[in-house]
Amino acid sequence: MKPVHHMKAASQPLRLPARPRDSGLPGWLFATLLLALVAASFLSLDLQWAQFLSRDAMERMGGFLAEFYPPELGTIFLRKVAVGAWETLAMSALGTLLASLAGLALALPAARLHGQDRARARGACRLLLNALRSIPELVWAALLLISAGLGPFAGTLALALHTTGVLGRLFAEALENAPPGPAAALRLQGVGEGRILLWATLPQVLPQLLSYALYRWENNIRAATVLGVVGAGGLGQLLSFHLGLFHMPRTATLLLAMLALVLLVDTGSLLTRRLLTR
């Protein structure tokens, strides 16, 4: 015969632990605020949909697009397009490479690598990264054209400066979110911080860092094209020249070259990221 207190304990219903309070913003409230912001944006802008979708606007747009056909396919002009495409590709690749190196150099002091890391330069480095990426590439190019002159050099530096701010912040976040186990194990063995970074932290986040750099390279292809409009070389400079003179067939060829270049880089970057994440 079981003791009475055992029978009482068995007869009492099991109580689930109290659900912890969620101190964050409720999902429904966030969605409501977001929808209100979108609605306010539509109301505050002068969006003339009736004029945009009118028959007269459609006819004028169709006539303008018809001027692009057929594209210019002359040998001499295609050689200029090939040179411009190569300049755009080289600007984006070199700018992204310089930004990756500079971003990693700034991300190390901008990240708190472990709980006891004082990270004295964290605030200053993050402020510098914010300043670099808050200035658009076009503004950097306009400033650098004064000192570096017209051509791809100013465009490359403009891409590098802006992208350094972007990649530096992403790299710092990746370093701070790295799994702490391997680094903590080495730290308990008395290994120095430099060796811990090289053998524990960086190997874990390297695929993520490379993925960030490749994605920014895709964006910099488009940005390098835009920078050419202000005289930084590449396809953008040719586009600005011929579009300003209303050479529509040549403009069509340049647009097709830009599309092909972006698709080529996007495909190569996508395949590379898949190989890195296997």
Rank of each mutant, 00 (worst) to 15 (best):
E218Q: 13
G190P: 00
L35R: 05
Q208H: 10
W86T: 13
S41Q: 14
F77W: 10
N130I: 00
G165S: 01
T156W: 04
P203Q: 12
A57Y: 07
S92W: 06
R216Q: 12
L104E: 05
Y215Q: 03
P207Q: 12
L271F: 13
F77V: 00
E176Y: 06
Q237K: 00
G190T: 04
T267D: 13
L239S: 04
P152K: 07
A223V: 06
A183Q: 10
T267Y: 14
A111P: 02
V230N: 01
L157M: 11
G149E: 10
M1E: 12
A85C: 03
A107I: 01
L145V: 11
G74K: 07
L29F: 11
F241M: 07
T96R: 03
T96A: 07
F42A: 13
M248P: 04
G155K: 12
S269T: 08
R55Q: 14
L263W: 11
P207D: 12
L175F: 11
L25I: 02
A174P: 06
L270Y: 12
F64A: 00
R278Q: 10
P3A: 15
W140A: 09
S23K: 02
A10L: 15
L161K: 01
L108H: 02
P152F: 01
L127Y: 05
A18W: 09
A99E: 06
L98K: 02
L98E: 08
L270K: 08
A10M: 14
A66H: 01
A185Q: 15
P17M: 00
L210Q: 06
A158Q: 02
T225V: 12
R195S: 13
I146T: 13
